[in-house]
Write a protein that binds this DNA or RNA. Structure first.
Length: 693
RNA sequence: GGGCCAGUAGCUCAGUUGGUUAGAGCAGGGGACUCAUAAUCCCUUUGUCGCGGGUUCGAGUCCUGCCUGGCCUACCA
């Protein structure tokens, strides 16, 4: 087989957040593919990095009162720790905030300039004066110019679906400072993508670079179809600069302007390769300017646009190789629902690892991942039963039911007759390999499990546990176990891209490390067999529950913190009060009616001798109705200022004897207490004695 | 609003260029075994293939309308 030279990337994790199980769909998918290629003997390298630039990082650093570089260094360490936990084996992990990347961005930029693709335009954008920054759409909220629904985001209305620019919003507010932004005009640099239309048309629509539905999507949505009646659609100019302040790289020939994060992020793929090349004494051009080297990107469907139009355009203009293939996957849903941070279903990688085995998730994802863009559902019931039934029950069971019988004698010296099982399975290897190659891991897993379903009956029929009882059948017993362990090993080789840990343990068990796909083609004979140790634990429901609960608790805490700190709507109302005092259980109208609330006028108010918190109020319900009430509002109100005003009181509250006298009711107020007490008052016109309904 | 994709047994999915009575795993039911992590093995129930039209000798597979769901809709990371 010819050795292929393959460079692989996954989308760059953004340095503003923890890795969760949704991200891991892609990272595990990529890792499996890379491990598969390496197992096949290809020269395959996984180049990866953190994506570090943009407004979000800048804002976060500001909020936390530290530098962007601190924020991204911390994220980088956390990300890499999580990836190791999930056995994701990249060859280099860089950062888009690196010298290599800055230099490469400059070179690519120069090429694009030289190709005459750059033009300047003035852009009106909202500017937050207090924060001193231009506002991206998602940092603006206001009233929809179409339907006048308040509280809408900067780019479209969730109610009427209108799209608009933030500058069109009525009464816009910055979500960063809660202040009203002003419109400022600034010079932006654009890439005229339309000049590359013909090239992109060709590249996307031919040559199998994209999944068919993706090619189709691009044609329908952006490129148009030159053969149709409407003809080709022009591609819009791509705004690739941001005025200062912006966390990123300043554009050398346009001081005060920075490259938009989506310009420098994909160049990070090249920069990471460059770092690796320097460490390993290789040439970057061998990978990125070489027709022989393949380049494969794995991404989620949300960033299709960037990777299938901008990125090939940039590469083309800068004279780099184009992607061989962009592999696009769908999103993760949890128990059939969209992942939600608020509901705690965006399980963090680190939370998962505290409770569950990474191999289980790797297998589960593999068993569900196809070559299409379908969403993948993480259903915990299925997860548990699939991993337990397939891996523990069927695959690992082969070893655990046979290894101990040959612990002392090892594998037979010649491979015994197994009725053709091994050869059959060796043959199936090609189909399994093709499935891996095409990213149809679900198919590969199905084929592998079919083999396991044939191996277990073999053991069943051979009855090694009965052979063991008869010493004269020792050879037969060894042969049966040799077959069982070889069939097991063959399965593990096929599974090793998905389950590297199992492969390693199998290598130890049979004293022959698993290093190559071709090992599946010939049986292993004559080696010692080590003492069998559990290779994989069953998933316990309680561990899944524990993870879910921990994640829920994390989510609640995060939401609380967010609501407490950030202005959540245009009035800047915090969510904290609802958190401090959550809603009580639902009540009926009958329950409510039991409480007789009345408008009352404060006719007298005075300090109480010796009381630290109380004021003594005399309330009038009109006519002769007077009530004496002791209220804990001394810290918040001066008695003389209360006299004359109207309040709301609970008029049928059972009188209560207090230290300083009888209290015949309660005045209504909000707030946590102390100085923060806010009495309720009716609007003007209310009359003392009126009931509140 | 516009677009892309999908809709097959309770669940997760296979169904090659349209071709015989639509399949697998899991779950459910029955039995066997006891080497194995209550693991394994054998047998077994279940479907108006989203709905309605159309093309065809023949459609889950092609065309069309509708319904439902997911996603995208460019200065959003």
């Amino acid at each position: 087989m010819n050795q292929r030279k393959i460079l692989v990337t996954a989308a760059l994790p953004y340095a503003n957040g923890a890795v969760h199980l949704g991200h891991l769909v892609e990272y595990i998918q990529t890792d499996i593919w890379v491990r598969f290629q390496k197992l096949r003997g290809h020269n395959c390298k996984f180049m990866w990095a953190d994506d570090t630039h943009g407004t979000a990082i800048m804002i976060r650093a500001r909020k936390e009162g530290r530098s962007e570089t601190e924020v991204i260094a911390e994220a980088n360490a956390e990300h890499q720790r999580d990836f190791q936990g999930f056995q994701i084996a990249y060859d280099n992990y860089g950062s888009t905030h690196s010298e290599e990347n800055q230099k490469l961005c400059g070179e690519v930029w120069q090429s694009i300039r030289d190709a005459g693709l750059v033009k300047e335009k003035d852009v009106d954008q909202l500017f937050d004066v207090e924060q001193g920054t231009f506002l991206a759409d998602r940092f603006v909220t206001g009233t929809c110019p179409e339907c006048h629904e308040p509280g809408q985001a900067g780019d479209n209305c969730s109610k009427c679906g209108a799209t608009y620019s933030p500058a069109e919003l009525i009464d816009p507010l910055s979500t960063l400072s809660g202040t009203k932004p002003e419109i400022r005009s600034a010079k932006h640099l654009f890439i005229e993508l339309e000049q590359l239309h013909g090239f992109l048309q060709d590249w996307t629509q031919s040559g199998d670079h994209l999944q068919p539905e993706v090619a189709n999507y691009l044609k329908g949505h952006f490129l148009g179809d030159p053969d149709s009646e409407e003809g080709a659609k022009p591609l819009r100019d791509w705004d690739i600069s941001r005025p200062a302040p912006y966390f990123g790289f300043e554009i050398p020939d346009s001081p005060g302007n920075f490259w938009y994060v989506w310009f420098d992020a994909p160049i990070g793929y090249i920069a990471s390769t460059q770092q690796w090349c320097e460490k390993n004494d290789q040439s970057l051009d061998d990978w990125w300017k070489n027709d022989v080297a393949e380049i494969h990107h794995f991404i989620g469907k949300d960033i299709t646009y960037f990777h299938t139009l901008f990125w090939p355009g940039m590469l083309k203009a800068a004279g780099y190789s184009l992607p061989t293939k962009v592999h696009i996957h769908g999103f993760l849903t949890v128990n059939g629902r969209k992942m939600s941070k608020r509901e705690g279903t965006a399980f963090k990688a680190s939370t998962y690892l505290k409770h569950l085995d990474p191999s289980a998730l790797r297998y589960y994802y593999a068993s569900k991942l196809g070559a299409r863009l379908d969403d993948l559902d993480l259903n915990f019931e299925e997860f548990t039963s699939k991993v337990n039934a397939d891996l523990v029950g069927k695959v690992v069971n082969l070893a655990s039911r046979s290894a101990k019988f040959v612990k002392n004698v090892g594998l037979s010296v010649t491979y015994p007759d197994d009725g053709g099982l091994f050869q059959q399975a060796a043959k199936a290897g090609d189909e399994i390999a093709a499935a891996y190659e095409n990213c149809e891991y679900n198919k590969a897993m199905r084929l592998i499990l079919e083999l396991a379903d044939r191996a277990n009956p073999f053991v069943e029929n051979a009855e090694p546990w009965n052979l063991k009882k008869d010493e004269s059948k020792a050879n037969e017993l060894q042969d049966v176990c040799t077959v069982a362990l070889n069939l097991f090993r063959q399965l593990v080789i096929y599974l090793s891209p998905v389950l590297p840990e199992l492969a390693e343990k199998t290598g130890v068990l049979l004293n022959d490390p698993i290093e190559s796909w071709d090992q599946s083609k010939s049986p292993l004979t004559g080696t010692d067999v080590s003492k069998f140790k559990h290779m994989m634990k069953r998933i316990e429901e309680k561990d899944v529950k524990a993870m879910e609960e921990e994640s829920k608790a994390e989510a609640d805490a995060t939401v609380a913190a967010e609501q407490a700190s950030a202005a959540s709507d245009q009035y800047g109302d915090s969510g904290q009060p609802m958190i401090d005092e959550p809603l009580t259980e639902e009540c009926t109208i009958d329950d409510f009616v039991k409480v007789d609330l009345r408008v009352a006028r404060v006719v007298n108010a005075e300090h109480v001798e010796g009381a630290r918190k109380l004021l003594k109020l005399t309330l009038s319900l009109g006519g002769e109705h007077r009530r004496q009430v002791f209220a804990g509002i001394k810290a918040a109100y001066e008695p003389e200022k209360l006299i004359g005003r109207q309040v709301v009181m609970v008029a049928n509250l059972k009188p209560r004897q207090m230290k300083f006298g009888l209290s015949e009711g309660m005045v209504c107020a909000s707030g946590p207490g102390g100085e923060e007490v806010f009495l309720l008052s009716p609007d003007e016109g209310a009359k003392p004695g009126q009931r509140v309904h």
